[in-house]
């Protein structure tokens, strides 16, 4: 269980983006998160993945604080995969930074052997997004924060990506927080959906 207790954080002094947010994400659960742009969805996602220092409140994984070193068990996937990769590294090295997925899993994500020799700019956005998702599935990762990861994909690529991810998540009992604007998509994927407004969470019917 990944738990956020009453977390508050902001970027500028005196201004809080998140104000007393608490949520729980169980292993194997799919939770949806929406909200207007600028409402703090990505900030919350990154906070859960340990990218931010909290002003107050705490994050816990199975009742214990999150580790400060090594591979973080909560991985954040940004909307723009270019942000997540080193442009000077080949795809093979980018993947190997986290782990070495076997050929069968690479195949399921549609990542061909010849891609490993390419640079990020030689892949399309959707192709690079699949690389970023596969990299985040290293052993030891327990929760994924998928921040608008399919909003620039066509419908078929989107459906393929989520189905592959759902299969792997089920095998490994991963919990997934899906951040997005697409109501139909969140309804499909998530058992529970939350709405973020003015830095506070409410449940969505």
């Amino acid at each position: 269980m990944l738990e956020a207790h009453d977390i508050t954080l902001g970027y500028r002094p005196g201004v809080s983006v998140l104000r007393g947010v608490s949520l729980q994400l169980a292993a194997g659960e799919w939770l949806g998160l929406s909200g207007a742009s600028g409402s703090g969805k990505s900030t919350l996602g990154r906070a859960l993945a340990g990218h931010h220092t909290l002003r107050s409140g705490s994050l816990q994984l199975d009742g214990a604080p999150l580790p400060r070193h090594g591979l973080h068990p909560v991985q954040w996937l940004p909307q723009v995969p270019e942000l997540a990769v080193n442009p000077r590294w080949r795809i093979g090295r980018i993947l190997a930074e986290a782990w070495t997925p076997d050929a069968a899993l690479r195949q399921r994500f549609g990542i061909g052997d010849d891609w490993l020799e390419r640079y990020p700019h030689e892949l399309s956005g959707g192709e690079l997004q699949r690389v970023a998702v596969l990299r985040s599935l290293a052993p030891g990762v327990r929760y994924l924060i998928a921040d608008e990861i399919s909003s620039m994909l066509d419908a078929i690529t989107q459906a393929e990506l989520w189905q592959t991810l759902a299969e792997v998540a089920e095998q490994r009992d991963l919990g997934v927080l899906v951040i997005g604007h697409d109501r139909a998509l969140l309804k499909r994927l998530c058992q529970r959906r939350l709405w973020l407004e003015n830095g506070q969470l409410c449940a969505e019917a």
């Binding site: 419908a155 078929i156 459906a159 989520w162 189905q163 139909a184």
Partner: peptide, 9 residues
């Protein structure tokens, strides 16, 4: 493949 149709591969 749209999520509000079959969402199917």
């Amino acid at each position: 493949a749209l999520p509000d149709n079959d969402f199917a591969r």
